[in-house]
Write a protein that binds this DNA or RNA. Sequence first.
DNA 1: CTGTTAGCGCATTCAC
DNA 2: GTGAATGCGCTAACAG
Lengths: 346, 346
Amino acid sequence: MAAATTIRDVARAAGVSVASASRALNGHRNVADAMRARVKEAARALDYVPHLGARSLSTRQTGTIGVVLPDLFGEFFSEMIRGIDSAAHRQGLQLLLSNMHGDARETEVALRAMRGRVDGLIVMSPNVGPDFLARHLPEALPAVVVNGGAEGRSCIAVDSYAGARAAVAHLVERGARKLAHIAGPADNADAQERLRGFRDGAADLLGDDDPIIFQGDFQDESGRAAGTALVERRRGVDGIFAGNDMMAVGCLDALADAGVAVPGEMMMVGFDDVPIARYARPALTTMRVAIADIGRRAFERLQASIEAPGQPPEPTERVIPELILRASTDRAITSDRPSRTQGRTP
Amino acid sequence: MAAATTIRDVARAAGVSVASASRALNGHRNVADAMRARVKEAARALDYVPHLGARSLSTRQTGTIGVVLPDLFGEFFSEMIRGIDSAAHRQGLQLLLSNMHGDARETEVALRAMRGRVDGLIVMSPNVGPDFLARHLPEALPAVVVNGGAEGRSCIAVDSYAGARAAVAHLVERGARKLAHIAGPADNADAQERLRGFRDGAADLLGDDDPIIFQGDFQDESGRAAGTALVERRRGVDGIFAGNDMMAVGCLDALADAGVAVPGEMMMVGFDDVPIARYARPALTTMRVAIADIGRRAFERLQASIEAPGQPPEPTERVIPELILRASTDRAITSDRPSRTQGRTP
DNA sequence: CTGTTAGCGCATTCAC
DNA sequence: GTGAATGCGCTAACAG
């Protein structure tokens, strides 16, 4: 951004003061029509573009909101951004991105990097405790915390526990008698909640206090490994609840290779409802999390607390995942006609 | 960002001048150890976080790069961001995001919004001409243009034409004699190039100067529609090249519903290699575009032109898509073991 | 080594 | 209506 034309150049060219140029350009009422015309013409001629950094220093408004997300991996990230952006874009706001690998120190760095450059913050940091955020979030900066509370902050979270219980209930309702779970990373809060929901569900509904758990990492390969392991030592399992769709799909693949019929011999439920879930064979029953909606909601709540600063936050908003019934738990279903889909190529 | 503690507060608390505080905090050599300690202590006690907006106004460096992308849709966007971010993050740089819907006016707005807030720009704007960018890109701002040239700018592009020709060649090599193409949106540059590559390939390799073209929009539903239409009036087609994977997968679904055997009666090739391609049944042969790599490369080139301003750009870098052979064009392949995969849940 | 002065580019008092 | 002066928060150039 080297020597570009500033408002001073415009003012000089139009033969007016900087203050007048500023007023003319920003559409204030108290400017003579003639002067405004001259200033605008000069700006056009000089190809003037206001320096937003300087403007925000002076107005104390940046016109951008900061987004701190964990890893930039997979569907979750892009859906979240899309939701936030679609709402922010409508208000003419920009997004300043910062990611970190769950690491607390990195989160702190990301948070600090936002200072003086954003009007508000949307933070999702699944691997740090609530007190950490409460401590490191600048007091005066409006913020919304996604999936992870913070004292005195506006929060919005996916109810992974409820979703997991619903998934288990569905499997049992469909006739499963012995369940297994493919768990996500142990240090991930959502993975923990899903595991907990599975455990409680299995105990309550099947009286099984020691269900089979495979340790996964949310990647498809770990689902495949779990599937292979399960096939070798079936132990009467007839229903699997995977911590997310990617692992479910990987597991389905392993089962197919081993000739296990789904849903005939084994039923499968995933979590998230990523696009792949619809196109897997058999199509995957899953707990849909409308991520983009969460992003949009997060933005709306942020917007509200920016406009009414100092207000105590509303209670935490919990989003309950919705069961999407597909072939992997239902023999009657043969095909699946998704309505909302996604392109990719530019 | 209301009344937060500034460097003046720190200086006052430590009993030194603002300049000294700044020097101490920024690790300059010429500061007495005692003073530095006092300043740092004061900063810690006051929980001081530097105002980056103010800093960049003074240093003329923002520590962030701007990213202007088309729609925030699907895999492409997130992969691109991921590639850019992973490289930028290593350098401690942030990303300022701006999207637009191909609209030229929106692109201009997005570009203007970057002024004074970024050290460089990565722009992808498939629906505006090269001259548009050349005109609206601030002269002095380093920039890299992805998939769409601009005079005197560093460019990097997917060679969609070459990819399409390779796809057609592959189909023909596998024995296809009569081809059809499902085209992407007519106003999309990549879609056009893929269509052109298909036409040329069909003409050169099969002597077919009037191959069947279905108009799609890069979404899976349009692929499904094309598949249905094709089934109704087969016209001897035995090979389909889809403009992207989503349409290919949609089409595969329609073919499956109609009982058309793939690859037995009909072969299919997609474009992009999104995660779904591996898990579709049959798994989809496709032209892989390593999008994240492109993002990373774009950043590297940007970095270079930031460090050596004024240098004329190197010639446009063309990325050739790679053929990924899967079951949809090969009866011998039964399963597919992807190595690199993606999670999703946080 | 340290404090004082000036300025980044802009919006906004406050006088005229 | 318009211009001159002031300050946003910080760093850099200049004295001391």
